[in-house]
């Protein structure tokens, strides 16, 4: 029973590689461009290119490959459900029927759609995880705030929004820890989370959510009080210890990302949508 093991989203892995030292804005922009491009990918070839790029980032940042991938494990059940839904429900007019079961028909179009959507979610998640693994909470905040400055000018509370986002990210791990404690306490009193099939296991999780959210709210409230006690009153008037510097390495990295994006766009256009 170890739930926090496979949580990588929102975890920061300290390091001093060139990827770690990049200006957070470079990393955030790169991640944003890649994620937007992902939405347009409708075939398999671009994913091959994409995985090469992500693999290069993993190598450069010296994150163990297994660790970078293990964060995907908790998502697999959800993806599997999504995949099955697409397989049976997505149809085009001229698609071949692979097999049918009761009133449902699995089609070739559904199979590809299921694959592509699953791939999209996996790559989206991996890209975001790589960003948080190599960027500390504060530099993430600073980077986002700096990038959103134009929006602040028109009166949006960007600093508060960013702080909320960052704290939400921090709570991924906290929620997993809380969940582990509650599940263990219930197991200790005879709830068999570790027995039964997938459906039975999921059903047993429901009574866990109430204490989980009460616990999380309590902790969030304590964090807010602690921040207030340290004179936090929102973003106004805050200064920074670390200033952002967009250096030469950042320029090269951005150019590399843009070049890769162009290649990706070209591949996307050339291969055309599968459906």
């Amino acid at each position: 029973m170890e739930l926090t093991k496979n949580i990588t989203l929102g975890v920061y892995l300290p390091g001093s590689t060139s990827i770690h030292r990049l200006d957070p804005r470079t990393k955030i922009l790169a991640a944003a461009i890649l994620i937007i491009l992902l939405l347009f990918v409708r075939t398999y070839e671009p994913y091959l290119l994409f995985s090469l790029f992500l693999f290069a980032v993993v190598l450069l940042s010296r994150i163990p490959v297994g660790y970078a991938l293990c964060g995907l494990k908790p998502m697999l059940p959800v993806l599997a459900i999504m995949w099955v839904f697409q397989l049976f429900l997505f149809k085009t007019e001229d698609t071949a029927v692979l097999f049918s079961w009761w009133i449902f028909e699995a089609t070739e179009a559904g199979l590809h759609m299921g694959n592509l959507i699953s791939l999209r979610v996996l790559f989206l998640f991996t890209t975001t995880t790589l960003l948080t693994l190599t960027t500390s909470v504060v530099s993430l905040t600073d980077g986002l705030e700096s990038l959103l400055k134009p929006l602040a000018k028109v009166g949006l509370p960007t600093q508060e929004l960013v702080m909320t986002l960052v704290i939400a990210l921090r709570f991924v791990l906290i929620l997993a820890e809380e969940l582990e404690k509650i599940v263990k306490a219930q197991m200790a009193r005879g709830v068999a989370f570790d027995r039964g099939n997938f459906l039975q296991k999921t059903k047993k999780l429901f009574p866990v959510f109430l204490p989980l959210f009460i616990g999380a709210f309590k902790r969030a409230e304590e964090l807010i009080v602690a921040m207030e006690a340290r004179s936090y009153t929102g973003g106004r008037g805050r200064t920074k210890m670390k200033t952002l510097r967009f250096g030469r390495v950042d320029l090269y990295s951005t150019l590399a990302t843009l070049a890769f994006s162009a290649l990706l766009v070209f591949t996307i256009l050339r291969s055309g949508p599968l459906y």
Partner: peptide, 16 residues
């Protein structure tokens, strides 16, 4: 607040 020790210590002075 932060995931790095020195950044957390800086949080208060930054707010000031």
């Amino acid at each position: 607040v932060s995931s790095v020790v020195e950044e957390d210590v800086a949080f208060g002075p930054e707010n000031l």
